[in-house]
Design a protein around this nucleic acid. Sequence first.
DNA 1: TGCCCGTTCGTACGTTGTACGAAGTACGCC
DNA 2: GGCGTACTTCGTACAACGTACGAACGGGCA
Lengths: 252, 252
Amino acid sequence: MSSDRSSAGDPARTLALLWRDPSAVPRRGPRRTLDLDAVVEAATALADAEGLPALTMRRVAERLGVAPMSLYTYVPGKAELLDLMLDAAYAAMPRQDTTGRPWRERVAAVAEENRRLHLAHPWAATVSTLRPPLGPGQAAKYEHELAAFDGCGLDDVEVDDCLTWVLGFVRACARDAADAEAARADGGTDEQWWASAGPLLARVLDPAAHPRATRIGAAAGAAHGSAHDPAHAYRFGLDRVLDGLAALIERP
Amino acid sequence: MSSDRSSAGDPARTLALLWRDPSAVPRRGPRRTLDLDAVVEAATALADAEGLPALTMRRVAERLGVAPMSLYTYVPGKAELLDLMLDAAYAAMPRQDTTGRPWRERVAAVAEENRRLHLAHPWAATVSTLRPPLGPGQAAKYEHELAAFDGCGLDDVEVDDCLTWVLGFVRACARDAADAEAARADGGTDEQWWASAGPLLARVLDPAAHPRATRIGAAAGAAHGSAHDPAHAYRFGLDRVLDGLAALIERP
DNA sequence: TGCCCGTTCGTACGTTGTACGAAGTACGCC
DNA sequence: GGCGTACTTCGTACAACGTACGAACGGGCA
């Protein structure tokens, strides 16, 4: 469904897991055959390789050589597992030090880091981050990305607004790219789809009533291979995003 | 789930349904108790009222007083039903005539129309439109929105790029707003969540290691009621989007 | 030593989209 | 006018999902 959500259940339990609170690992009982990191890594590897729909508690368990229900001693549920996966992915992001460089380069570097994150973990774009995983990875990421706006002359609220806006753009591009990948996985290429749908559309769509749509649609389709080229949309959009920030930052 | 996708199955059949091809309604057999529009309307009403996860073939059938499997004589499957819902929603959008007004007003009007669409149909933001429903609603919408860039001095490909970028922004905001609504539906308010998670976070997060995160996070949280205010993000972002376009359109 | 908390996992339930086939209906040809 | 057949309706069924429940067992602490 809608998209998978995270951050359900008890926030205290989730935070203890995210920060690997030592008091959260039990002292009594039989020795555990796994640990939390193994579960998170297996789930991430599965989602990376086959996408979020393939991320099943049963299949994660299978990868670990364990019965499905055993996972629930490590993780309260699937939503929390997604939180842990996301925070681990954030923690693993390389963070380029751009101190002293012009703001435009610094913000572009942040965008690029996030684009790479979503290339490595396409599922990450489709998990709702409205309630972000409040773990060490998210904290380090947020701190690092805020620093890109140091010395821009913006107040604190504006910096947060700008960062949210930039990340939202990258995320939106990544979602489209992930959708394109998913469509390719089970249904043929975008090109194939347009090749079969295009001529059919031409028979029903009246060019006189839709002059711009036919002309511009054809031009856009010819410019990039198919109807929507996520990579081109990112390159084009990022320039507009930076220009939009410039109007705020370099105001007279 | 990943997000629900649309446009699976035979494109020819889907296009015939979208354009209400008369040759697609059968001539023989018993009289049908419903028609396609009734199915689409019932599904839309259900999704509007209870969200996309509640949109079940069984529940749509229930609303229509029909057995679940009967729906499959009107619609090949759920994916095609989503296409039909989306195109119908597009067709029903009011389209403001802004001919002759400055481009900034015209593009802002397009953004506002799309914001209203997503307010009326929050589920629309979470359906992938990578392969858009190629129906009359989408065609009219695309034609109308392209017209907002008339006389801007952009070439055809640039116009399509700009429109895609603007609509992507509105969609991303709408997705966040829909996520917020979904979270409110089953799990308490955002404010409640932050009220319980915030103090816990303060105990584990080191302010010395994360000076900007703690300061700016607190400032942003105080400025709007919770961590993320979708309405504010839209207002702030739209101004940046228009500024970003201005740099391209009003270049010297 | 014995208690009891913890782990592991088999079974089971409710939910989803939809394939299949039986039963009944009405158009179009003769 | 009668009949074949294309069509609708819908009951049943299946495989997949997340996960609740409880039995069986293991090991740190009193």
